[in-house]
Amino acid sequence: MKLTLKVWRQADPQAKGRFETFSVNANEHMSFLEMFDVLNEELLAEKKEPIAFDHDCREGICGACSMVINGQAHGPLGGTTTCQLHMRHFKDGDIIVVEPFRASAFPVIKDLVVDRSSFDRIIQAGGFISVNTGQAPDGNAIPVERDKAGAAFDAAACIGCGACVAACPNASAMLFTAAKVSHLALLPQGQIERKTRVKNMVNQMDIEGFGKCSNTYACEAECPKEISVDYIARMNREYFAAVIAGE
């Protein structure tokens, strides 16, 4: 299949970017990133600069790959990361627009590579349970209701890719932050720091310059792990309880 790609090229964070058009011969069994590999090999053969993009595990779990494909974070297939998106979902002759995740809090490093360290800082602000190595009681000393553990897992399944921010019209990081807050708030281990955690994480999220949630739910629609916006409501609840009702 012959495809036309319009890809965002940007030499460095300060440079002014632009779209560049390429044509590439793909095969339907390739993943989207393998199609980029093929294109990059061709560019290298012509001694041109290959397109930079983040990727690593290529099995949908590390969260490194990004790309907004035809206006959708991780492309058209629901519940799928770019690395797991295969070319059979495109047609011969398609024109595909590929852009980086766009948000002021995710500055472009080069081409399609963005800096998502703001997510790390949100976690550093409180996305943990303060327990030093060796302090833990026996695992079974803390029973967890099976459904609660399941709900905590659903939130913890977040891969930190940033698709929620990329998809959100406001570039809000609410789904990411809410997933972590909810994961720990749902578990008995997370109760002690429940209030400070949500306050600090929301505060850091604001400092990083993410947008404010307007409940469009685009994040949920484009999240490769299909994390529910119900967790956002939960975080709101946690936050109000901590700030308004907290001492």
Binding site: F128, I129, V131, T133, G134, Q135, A136, P137, D138, G139, I142, P143, V144, E145, R146, A149, G150, A152, F153, A156, H183, L184, L187, Q189, G190
Partner: peptide, 16 residues
């Protein structure tokens, strides 16, 4: 023990 204390959501029996 350490991982449970950190909040790793391991699979649970119905009894928790």
């Amino acid at each position: 023990d350490q991982c449970v204390a950190q909040g790793v959501p391991f699979a649970r029996e119905y009894g928790g």
